[in-house]
Design a protein around this nucleic acid. Sequence first.
DNA 1: TAGATTGTTAATCGATTAACAATC
DNA 2: TAGATTGTTAATCGATTAACAATC
Lengths: 295, 295
Amino acid sequence: MAIGRSPQSSSQTPDPGAARRPSRARGIPEATVARLPLYLRALTALSERSVPTVSSEELAAAAGVNSAKLRKDFSYLGSYGTRGVGYDVEYLVYQISRELGLTQDWPVVIVGIGNLGHALANYGGFASRGFRVAALLDADPAVVGSSAAGLPVRHMDELESIVESQHVSIGVITTPPGAAQQVCDRLVEAGVTSILNFAPTVLTVPDGVDVRKVDLSIELQILAFHEQRKAGDEPDRTESVLDRAPGPVRAAAAKLRRAAGGSGKTRAAAEDADPAAKGKPGKAGEGELSAVMPA
Amino acid sequence: MAIGRSPQSSSQTPDPGAARRPSRARGIPEATVARLPLYLRALTALSERSVPTVSSEELAAAAGVNSAKLRKDFSYLGSYGTRGVGYDVEYLVYQISRELGLTQDWPVVIVGIGNLGHALANYGGFASRGFRVAALLDADPAVVGSSAAGLPVRHMDELESIVESQHVSIGVITTPPGAAQQVCDRLVEAGVTSILNFAPTVLTVPDGVDVRKVDLSIELQILAFHEQRKAGDEPDRTESVLDRAPGPVRAAAAKLRRAAGGSGKTRAAAEDADPAAKGKPGKAGEGELSAVMPA
DNA sequence: TAGATTGTTAATCGATTAACAATC
DNA sequence: TAGATTGTTAATCGATTAACAATC
């Protein structure tokens, strides 16, 4: 892969860098690709119920999107429907699976076997979509040797040999944030070219490596934003009049605040600045989703 | 909240329904809201290192976005920077926290205490952002009474009283998919208006309730799509010539396939249709991320 | 003043949606 | 044939980005 480093190219919610990624290969828009798994899931459910065909309207409802969007999405894959009838469920399952690359086997390594690593190792959705857990890895000798989901937890030292021998191209990072970049570097060095990152860290990877991230805290913060706007719009803001004042006034206020040494801080802001200063129950630092800290 | 039901209005990757959500309240674009937590995280790190000011270029690099986008995003919040100087770190932490609603306390319930529920209960990022775990709930008597992250696991029966007494407006669903809609209904009925759903299910909620989902399997499938395109474009497709043939030919082929009873299936497609038929290691059904099945 | 950096403009790009002709 | 439903068009909307005037 290329040498030049670039900030991670993909993420979850909107998608910083989506436009830059080479991903539009064969012309399927990124937004469409992201919905294909939703359609596939809905189709799989229909298939299990032995439903032979489905209309765009029905399938769209099952997948939680609107039918025009679904038809547009499918039009990028080809004309797999029949006018006046709908789509053949089995055939569409096959086409979408193929398009997503799920007719291949994808060996995956999971690095960092804390609670989240355990949860992922046990995740049924992995195996049922062609993903196979090739190995569970951890740096903590206390964890290495134990087993999760019927697989032994192996030491980080084995990473390179496992990736090579099993042709692993996808890695999942469930370490604490402090270890994520190191782990990422080792994965990439070993030959992994797609990374799913659960650590709340921006990963830097070479060109040609895809990173997606799942960030639990961010999802909650987005909910909080909307929640705040529901509760009557002005819930209990500690907002100063100056904060909504015209430009010059605000600039002056900011300058004063700076001079005064951050007097505008509130509880949350102050705690962010010094996590050690707070006496809340959840004592772990931000993002310590898994238990152990690889070397 | 309103009576009419609608499919869930928000999700993760692109965002089906983003345009429809009332969320643009006070005019901050959804894409910007989704990035505010990233900026906040980067700013918090700078704050911990006692960095007083930061330029849009530096902060953008730390957050993994481009600086024009960052400045545009901040312009929706107000003019909090100083030309020629940059942004005051503490002040910006405060402003973003306030905008996201993080200066308030948000009690949260987590329903379904399997591995993932455990992982979330232990997640440090919760407490450090004003989120407080008000209760852990499960329907399985074997789990109820145990403790996770220092909190007792309580029975689902207590859901309504907890939500009411502690004014919980945010619920996290980490149950198996089969239980998710029921749990969702109870949460909503009890007064919860924001839901973070980890179960691979499309939830139906009344207007006024926000749903975001985190879907591990979907993220992996998106990676697989891109990965497939890296390995030389035509990896080992089981693709028939007919699949890329012009419309009429393809339609005829599909019809034949239908008549023949789904002969186009491959391994992945066949297993999707009948999960019980497969002999893979991950024996759990799709999406059984957590251990127990609430009533 | 000279250098630095913001905040905003305007152009561009990608995604969504309604509508409907094509066609089963 | 009449009814149903796809696949595509075109309009609209929202997000991204480069560029630069404003201004510290």
